[in-house]
Design a protein around this nucleic acid. Sequence first.
DNA 1: CTGAAAGCGCTTACAG
DNA 2: CTGAAAGCGCTTACAG
Lengths: 342, 342
Amino acid sequence: MKRPTIADVARSAGVSPTSVSFAFNRPDRVSEQTLERILAAAAELGYSPDPVARSMSTGRTGTIGVLVPQPLATVVHNPYISEFLAGVAEATDSQDLPILLVGPRQGSIEHAVFDAAVDGFLTIGLEPFRPTIQLLTNRRLPYVMVDSDPVEGVACVNADDTTGAHEAMAHVLAAGHRTIGILGIRSPRPGRWERYVGTLARRMDGYRRALEEYGMGMNDVHLTECTVSEEGGRRGLKRLLEKTPRPTAIVAMSDITALGALSEARDRGIHVPGEMSVVGFDDIPETRWSQPALTTVSQATEAKGRLAARLLLDLIAGGASPDHILLETRLVVRESVDTRSR
Amino acid sequence: MKRPTIADVARSAGVSPTSVSFAFNRPDRVSEQTLERILAAAAELGYSPDPVARSMSTGRTGTIGVLVPQPLATVVHNPYISEFLAGVAEATDSQDLPILLVGPRQGSIEHAVFDAAVDGFLTIGLEPFRPTIQLLTNRRLPYVMVDSDPVEGVACVNADDTTGAHEAMAHVLAAGHRTIGILGIRSPRPGRWERYVGTLARRMDGYRRALEEYGMGMNDVHLTECTVSEEGGRRGLKRLLEKTPRPTAIVAMSDITALGALSEARDRGIHVPGEMSVVGFDDIPETRWSQPALTTVSQATEAKGRLAARLLLDLIAGGASPDHILLETRLVVRESVDTRSR
DNA sequence: CTGAAAGCGCTTACAG
DNA sequence: CTGAAAGCGCTTACAG
């Protein structure tokens, strides 16, 4: 009834546990005869080595953990993260490694770090505050931070958000728009965009620089923050539409909120891009299907996941150094931004 | 440099490892003073209990494994599986449990079963052959099979595929179509639909029954099998279009291939539903966005994941019996099937 | 080629 | 309230 152990097999095959272990892990170290006998006994008992016990001995789990900033149920629906995970999986599939999806625990990612039986972590969108880094470091496991501010001595993979955001805003400004609404992302410090960190800070910075090139500043645009979901984008647009003068262009910090804005605009009979332009960020697959197709900033999300995972795998293998990788972004002009003659 | 162990903390705090363990797991079992001292020592050393060692002692990993039938990289992009995983995550999130995504190992799911450090498995789309069941059983871990044929003594969760498929085909027949192409799914036994098992068999069965009610049989329809992807659907449609007479209706065994067929039809200037009708299966979110919106069979995929995960969690907790659950399906009529007057 | 023994880092009755 | 000791099921030098 109970699960058979290596000792059971050894007894049944009339050999030592050592030999059974060898039979499974280094078949060349036992004679062909005993190998056969052991395998037969194992098959008969339905034995296979316990993965936990094996990890205990070897010190390896053969698993990498992906620390995500939201509950797993919402993460799975987030196209950006799916895209990222696909890249991660491309790297792990080649070694047949499973992926442990780890969401917040009691509301905090930090708590989740301790209980995960993995060989290393990929973090995404973590705020690189000291305590967090400390916790991660305490685990004495290699990790790669994605979408955070680069931290000295820690492997980081990021997109060139500043350049991308700059391009997006410059595109809208070049089209003649001067009444602009930014669809921001609700951060831990709501409304205080001056204190944004990581990805948000870099994107905001790119927007600001583009505005300055046109003699404008953050005070000359409407900023509203919303949750990263279609619904969030809808609500955000509603708030922006109440401003006077009403924005002629919406610059969204993520595609999913941009798509929400598009839906809300359609429901209200506001023609995009005729009456209002919209530009997003990320270039998730859905942007190609939207009506109109969304102009946005592409950031090779899948490649980002693949690179980050490879870096982590190298780190785990003991090679590689904690590099900082910056991936290119580029504006993809589709149909949602129109020239405004004024 | 090395990761501190419970012994290090004990030494540093001047207590026994037992007390350190209690401090972390059952704080009420140590005096307030020693608790403080231990926690301080642990914090100073940056100690936290090793999850693998803990699992070794307790016999629990606190993780559930999801066995998926395809490489993880493709699974993440499969809307049906994403939907299912979202349901699973809803159940695990409430207990802050991580999810281990396990893909095939050396091409076979069976191999992957052995190395996963989990408390139980959720399998999806596994062919319920003896050897597989045997392997799963040998692991001595609870598991629930989703999208397979119900197996006596094993927890199973399925949709009522037969009824759903029947409705889909009947809908097309009622609309007057008599030249029908079935966009099948490439199975391990290509072309031998008579020997399909599990989900595929049930859906095929539903189609067949509907046809029989109209005095038709499987020989009166064109069947082509394709891979479960948009590209697969495109290629499948190409093959069906070469048949004479050309099908006026396409019955797809999955939405994603139906969507591919829709794209291919548009590229070829074939109007749907004017010139050709299409019906899918699954009701993935994308069906609402397609042009035209896809008529399909809804099967509450998210609920399926949630139920399966809850069942597994109950099984792990020692409660519950290995029930067989059958979820309702229902035809969702949208825009892709048109009445054909003949 | 084979095996006895130590060790991986915890938890948990059990005894004091 | 505290601790010595056994045990979880493997792997791996090391010795024969």
